[in-house]
Design a protein around this nucleic acid. Structure first.
Length: 386
DNA sequence: TGTGCCGGGAC
DNA sequence: GTCCCGGCACA
């Protein structure tokens, strides 16, 4: 938390989430971060634009929040103006019951309880409310079903789009590239064609989301059917404004991830919030594509975005290298950056302990015989060098 | 409190 | 040189 003095103004910061949408955390001195929930119902750039328009509104909301937030972190049984403070302070409890009357014409996505002192989501990491799944998967019934969800429930309404820009969904499965018109369709496609229809449904659902991306298609007045019908056809009148930063790279890299592997990888990851990767599924960008990630000390790669209560120590420049874009999976939006992350750029900090696994950690005391000699002798570990 | 490892001692 | 461990710094 920066700033920190009492009575100091709330800072509004905005993150661009990997899927390209803004998220506005409320930084209240003395409190943990309270995130406005992402103003996006699905991973749509266009809706993000809409959300952009709502930024101002959010600031107003924030102002209201401030006024109503004269309350301490603890004092939170807001009698009046409650919607605003709720909004700010507990986006996690997105029950969908209220779209706060007071504040807004904005998306009104959030409502909430009053638990300001515990900004972390009430859900375990396994079922993060703001996981991609939550954002995109309509069938998940975990209470995340607010208004957004005409969009969630079906494809975006074309009539809202000017200039005949249409949103379509492109399969990211290696060498597939199928483009479909609807989320449902693409999900079905991914599920049936690539993931298989079998068990493990929960995991599958997440993967479905992972394997498609939203693309904007400028439709020529001409036959639109062609676009959907023959997505791979080069002659199709599609101008894809690919949202992904590096779709090719993605397609190249992704094959390396067996679905199973991918799913496990997904569960470890983190939002690269600080890189304004403009992508619907930018978190899909393999993190080794991020600048400088290839040669990092393990200590940096092991940055934990675990369930956390801690605030972002410094919202500014955290190296891209230190953030795994996978993190969205499984952790929701509450995250923690370990200070050690910053170590990679400071030789002095390189020696920060505890990030790398050591023989002791790896093998355990009971298998001391498998430790490297140095470890056995209580010297600096030679096997798992930092 | 657990862990990593420096410094130093015994052999 | 090898092996061991007291003790400190750190998370």
């Amino acid at each position: 938390m920066e700033g920190g003095g009492e009575g100091e103004p709330v800072q509004l910061l905005q993150f661009v989430l990997p899927f390209g949408c803004l998220m506005t955390p409320l930084v209240v001195p003395g409190l943990s971060l309270c995130f406005f929930p992402p103003r996006v119902s699905h991973l749509s750039p266009s809706r993000c634009r809409k959300a952009d328009a709502a930024v101002e509104m959010d600031e107003m909301v924030a102002a209201m929040v401030l006024t109503s937030l004269s309350c301490s972190p603890v004092v939170q049984s807001p009698p009046a103006g409650e919607s605003a403070s709720r909004v700010a302070c507990d986006p996690w409890k997105e029950s969908g019951d209220v779209s706060d009357s007071g504040s807004s014409t904005t998306s009104g996505h959030w409502s909430g309880g009053s638990d300001i002192s515990t900004p972390s989501p009430p859900h375990p990491a396994g079922s993060p409310k703001y996981s991609i799944e939550a954002l995109s998967s309509p069938q998940v019934d975990d209470g995340f079903e607010t208004d957004s969800d005409p969009f969630l429930l079906d494809e975006p309404a074309p009539r809202k789009r000017k200039n005949s820009v249409k949103v379509m969904y492109k399969c990211l499965w290696p060498s597939c590239g199928k483009v479909l018109r609807s989320i449902v369709g693409i999900k079905r496609h991914v599920k049936t064609q690539h993931l298989g229809d079998s068990a493990d449904s929960d995991q599958r659902k997440r993967e479905e989301d992972f394997y498609y991306t939203e693309v904007q298609v400028k439709e020529e007045p001409a036959p639109e059917a062609a676009a959907a019908a023959s997505p791979t056809s080069a002659s199709a009148p599609i101008i894809i404004q690919q949202a992904l930063a590096k779709p090719e790279a993605l397609l190249v890299e992704q094959p390396a991830l067996e679905p199973a592997l991918a799913s496990s990888a997904l569960s470890q990851s983190a939002p690269s919030s600080f890189w304004h990767i403009q992508a619907d599924h930018a978190y899909q960008v393999s993190w080794w594509h991020l600048p400088g990630t290839g040669h990092l000390p393990k200590s940096c790669r092991s940055i934990s975005w675990a369930t956390a209560t801690s605030t972002l120590p410094s919202l500014s420049p955290v190296s891209p290298a230190c953030v795994s874009p996978w993190s969205f999976w499984g952790v929701g939006l509450d995250w923690e950056i370990r200070g050690a992350c910053l170590c990679s750029h400071s030789p002095l900090q390189m020696k920060v302990r505890g990030e790398a696994k050591k023989c002791r950690k790896v093998y355990g005391i009971e298998h001391r015989d498998q430790w490297c000699t140095a470890c056995r002798w209580k010297k600096a570990c030679q096997r798992f060098l930092d």
